[in-house]
Amino acid sequence: MRILVVEDDKDVAGFVVKGLRESGHVVEHADNGRDGLFLAASEPFDAIILDRMLPGGIDGLRILETLRSQRNTVPVLFLSALGQVDDRVLGLKAGGDDYLTKPFAFAELLARVEALTRRGKGEGPVTKLTVGDLEMDLLSRSVRRAGQKIDLQPREFLLLEYLMRHAGQVVTRTMLLEGVWDYHFDPQTNVIDVHVSRLRQKVDKPFSSALIHTVRNAGYMLRTDGQ
């Protein structure tokens, strides 16, 4: 994937660029708003990681607004030291697809960027999700594994749906909290782990192979062993 990183902090930028390249992505970097806007407008990218505060008169919000006004729908993840809720809302309103507060764990950033690019592909409406022998029918809201029906609570269904939509990708706890519960703060206790472990009881336990995997220091991933 081609990813543009617009970030003025050398350390953060270097860290992000290096990490993304190691994960197999092609990365371009701009350290000010002017270059960032130029690159973003002139070259095609699969995702843009955009810092809110940038030197050179053009900040992240301006870049995004300019891109969106040119009907450029490239997925954008905001990166900001401004952790206030209003800033997040403002960033998303301007057309941002995700928002991450500094300091962040790289795993979180990577997971979110990869989730973005998946979303960005725009698969259109799907009615059925399949991962290995796990099938989810979104219309009848039923789940089967190896032909066997699995009974899920509504929230468990949503959790599994989220995991299946991001199959093969790392999904962090905060992503789940935001995506499934629409919560935008960190609960102190490990609520997500408990929910995932309950889902495992139903989806993995009765079967020979596990689909829901824990990724250390990052989150979870739904995948078949072969993947």
Binding site: G83, Q84, V85, D86, V89, T101, F185, D186
Partner: peptide, 20 residues
């Protein structure tokens, strides 16, 4: 996390969020 919690409390106490 502690810093963020502190900032959030300060933000709430400042009352800026009443617009929401």
């Amino acid at each position: 996390a502690v810093f963020q919690a502190l900032l959030r409390i300060a933000e709430i106490e400042a009352g800026a969020r009443r617009s929401a």
